[in-house]
């Protein structure tokens, strides 16, 4: 029973689409996921995110392809970073540089 997907308000608008059966298994969160979860809370506290709509808007702005490819907290990380860049708190260059450093640390076995 195909469902007309026209008019979906964005990649997040899933209600009524066809899908696989639900996998009810439990997943423990990785440490970085716990960190991203807490980071968004701290961003609310510091009024960087003024409303839940701002975190959501940043997730929806990823577009359908990226939205579907990313895991849940990857989307949150992407939206949080975008917001901080837009607010001028960090630059994309700083983020890129730090990502390279973290990769190096990983290679050094730190």
């Amino acid at each position: 029973m195909p469902h007309d997907t026209q008019g979906r308000i964005g990649p997040q608008d899933l209600g009524g689409l066809d899908g696989d059966s639900v996998d009810p298994s439990e997943h423990d969160l990785a440490q970085w996921e716990r960190m991203v979860d807490a980071m968004t809370r701290l961003m609310y506290r510091e009024k960087i995110f003024g409303d839940a709509a701002q975190l959501r808007e940043g997730i929806e702005a990823l577009g359908p392809d990226v939205y579907q490819r990313l895991s849940y907290f990857e989307r949150w990380a992407a939206s949080s970073a975008r917001k901080c860049v837009m607010e001028g708190l960090v630059t994309q260059e700083e983020l890129d540089e730090r990502i390279a450093q973290i990769r190096e640390r990983g290679r050094d076995g730190a």
Binding site: W32, M35, V36, M39, L42, F73, E74, W76, A77, A78, S80, A81, C84, L89, V90, E94, L95, R98, I99, I102, R103
Partner: peptide, 10 residues
């Protein structure tokens, strides 16, 4: 990594 980098910078 983006999430980890952002946390460190903040």
């Amino acid at each position: 990594l983006l999430g980890m980098a952002l946390n460190e910078l903040l």
